[in-house]
Design a protein around this nucleic acid. Sequence first.
DNA 1: AGAAAAATCATGGAAAAAGAGGATAGGAGT
DNA 2: ACTCCTATCCTCTTTTTCCATGATTTTTCT
Lengths: 205, 205
Amino acid sequence: MKTKLFIVDDHFMITEGIKAMLQNESEMEWLGHAYNADTCLSFLQHQLPDVLLMDINLPDKSGIDLCREVNEKYPTVRIIGLSTFNQLSFISKMLDNGAMGYLLKNATKQEVLTAIRTVMQGKNYLSPEAFDMLKKPNVEEAPTLTRREIEVLQLIAEGMTNAEMAEKLFVSATTVDTHRKHLLEKFNAKNTAALIRAAAQMKFV
Amino acid sequence: MKTKLFIVDDHFMITEGIKAMLQNESEMEWLGHAYNADTCLSFLQHQLPDVLLMDINLPDKSGIDLCREVNEKYPTVRIIGLSTFNQLSFISKMLDNGAMGYLLKNATKQEVLTAIRTVMQGKNYLSPEAFDMLKKPNVEEAPTLTRREIEVLQLIAEGMTNAEMAEKLFVSATTVDTHRKHLLEKFNAKNTAALIRAAAQMKFV
DNA sequence: AGAAAAATCATGGAAAAAGAGGATAGGAGT
DNA sequence: ACTCCTATCCTCTTTTTCCATGATTTTTCT
């Protein structure tokens, strides 16, 4: 029984590269590729691959959303996430959303084959780089912010002072200052600079 | 006379993809590939391609630097820059440093061939996306920072004060403060918060 | 209805950053 | 030789943030 493969990635070179790497492997069957999430979902309606290689960045939606969607509708499809090195922070999100493996785009043929075989055995596969990334304890849990705190956070990021925000929000400057203090606490930040960096990393600003 | 091609890119899938795309083209001769700038430069010492496809991100140095270097040493080599969509801001730098063309990694086989043929005629080739990018004056151009400024910027983002940075960098606090002032100017930021947000958006921190 | 969370306001002081104005020295490039 | 850039250092003043410690009112949830 051959392993049926499908890939969704908007970079033609990547899809061609994988195809070239795997086309001489007798155990692999190449079903085809898609350049965006929509086309991928349409394909899945009439044929299901065993393994779906998925870029985390797609033109119409994030690979993370697509991953969850595919996993809900077609739980038998094993998903392997793909990304370049600078997007490693998305690994855990992909895995949370049902991906069974993760590869970087500079993976060798051998590594790709190993990844596919591993997930076919029902096990998880992480590239060494992805593994390193996951090892380090993720202290960067996004805190829960109140409506007002989000508002203040975003104004801070725009460069406004407490007095300016107070005027804009029709409250006193001390109120703004209190929200600000809570933000520093919630983000565990020493000062504004650390706060905004953390907030930026967590996509708040 | 065949067109001799060489590619330098640290993503195996990309090099394989291009090879697969072009290997059946009789006018193209595949010289090989390199995964980093060093290997590429070694190769060029004994054989020169007509066209060099070059990723803008390499493990040992930026494609931009490599581009300049190759252009100075081997001006006959026509360089085509390669990147994914989110790195478009480097286009003009590559072109400034001697690249004759620019392709995105989701280029089709047809586009790659067109690019190679165009630069072989001594003309510039830009992918449509790259062209769009160059057309619109990007107000959010990342400023050019000095080595020290980058250092200070990153320490600010970590939440350090001027005094702490001064100690760490073995300079006086006023020096750090000067770098800080220059950063505010270069990023056009009112204060630290705006600075860090801008820097985060431009991937400096 | 009652508890918890959120939003509001305050005082006073210490620490840090921002703004304005300099200066000196080395290196790269013209 | 000369300019520009980088990196270094300085003073003084004002503004802003950070810290500590409080409190009241409104909203939300159980």
